[in-house]
Computed example of a mutant assay.
Amino acid sequence: MREVLPLAKRMLAENGEFYPYGGITKLDGSIVHVGAREEDTDHPTPTTLVKILRKEFQAQAANQEIEACAIVFDVLIRPPNETEKVDAIQVNLDHKGHYSVEVLFPYLIADGAVTYRTPFAQEGDYSIFGTKENAQAT
């Protein structure tokens, strides 16, 4: 996560937004940043880009080419114990050891600076390497 999160913060500070992107950890431990592109458009939808990244990472996981992956995107969420929705960076992390978590970093942008509020995490959907049940069976 520490490898992929800084780009989102920088893009928010510079542009006030960013397109979804990701990163993988290869089997040799090297980290590769990954972008996505929607064909035939210069203005892709974030949802489509997340789906493209997820599909690519699922294929690499199925071929046993990666150890872990992260997908980073901007969301509007309601933090725990709050009533109002806020902007947040969401980082979906998945590991071949059947670990899946969504880490959310609520943020504010003021005078071109991004300030994080209290982050929080929740269980992920295990969509890259397999289900939670697979993890419990091993």
Score class of each variant (00 low, 15 high):
2 R>H: 07
2 R>V: 00
2 R>C: 00
3 E>N: 11
5 L>N: 00
6 P>G: 08
6 P>I: 03
7 L>K: 12
9 K>T: 15
10 R>F: 07
13 A>T: 12
14 E>G: 00
14 E>F: 01
16 G>V: 06
16 G>I: 01
16 G>E: 08
17 E>H: 12
18 F>K: 04
20 P>W: 04
20 P>C: 07
21 Y>S: 04
22 G>L: 10
23 G>V: 09
26 K>S: 12
27 L>S: 10
27 L>I: 15
29 G>R: 01
31 I>K: 11
31 I>M: 08
31 I>R: 13
32 V>D: 13
33 H>T: 15
34 V>Q: 07
34 V>H: 01
36 A>P: 06
39 E>Q: 12
39 E>F: 05
39 E>C: 02
41 T>G: 03
42 D>A: 13
43 H>P: 00
45 T>C: 09
45 T>Q: 14
45 T>D: 14
46 P>H: 12
46 P>A: 15
47 T>V: 10
48 T>V: 14
50 V>H: 08
51 K>Q: 14
53 L>T: 01
54 R>S: 07
54 R>E: 10
55 K>Q: 11
55 K>C: 02
55 K>M: 05
56 E>Y: 11
59 A>H: 10
59 A>T: 13
60 Q>W: 11
61 A>C: 00
62 A>F: 07
65 E>A: 11
65 E>S: 11
66 I>C: 04
68 A>Q: 02
68 A>F: 01
68 A>G: 08
68 A>W: 07
69 C>L: 01
70 A>M: 10
70 A>E: 12
70 A>V: 14
71 I>M: 02
71 I>S: 08
73 F>H: 15
73 F>L: 07
76 L>C: 05
76 L>H: 09
76 L>N: 10
77 I>T: 13
77 I>E: 12
77 I>F: 05
80 P>C: 09
80 P>Q: 09
80 P>A: 06
81 N>H: 11
81 N>P: 00
82 E>G: 03
82 E>M: 13
83 T>G: 06
83 T>E: 15
84 E>R: 09
86 V>E: 02
86 V>Y: 00
87 D>M: 14
88 A>F: 02
89 I>P: 01
89 I>Y: 03
91 V>Q: 09
91 V>M: 06
93 L>K: 06
93 L>H: 09
95 H>N: 09
96 K>R: 14
96 K>I: 03
96 K>F: 00
98 H>M: 09
98 H>N: 08
101 V>N: 05
104 L>K: 03
105 F>D: 06
108 L>W: 13
109 I>E: 00
109 I>K: 01
110 A>D: 07
110 A>E: 15
112 G>I: 10
114 V>S: 06
114 V>Q: 03
117 R>E: 15
119 P>F: 01
122 Q>T: 13
123 E>M: 07
126 Y>I: 08
126 Y>E: 08
128 I>C: 01
129 F>V: 10
129 F>A: 10
131 T>E: 13
131 T>P: 01
132 K>W: 01
132 K>Y: 05
133 E>N: 12
133 E>M: 09
135 A>H: 04
137 A>V: 11
137 A>S: 14
137 A>I: 08
138 T>W: 06
138 T>H: 14
138 T>A: 14
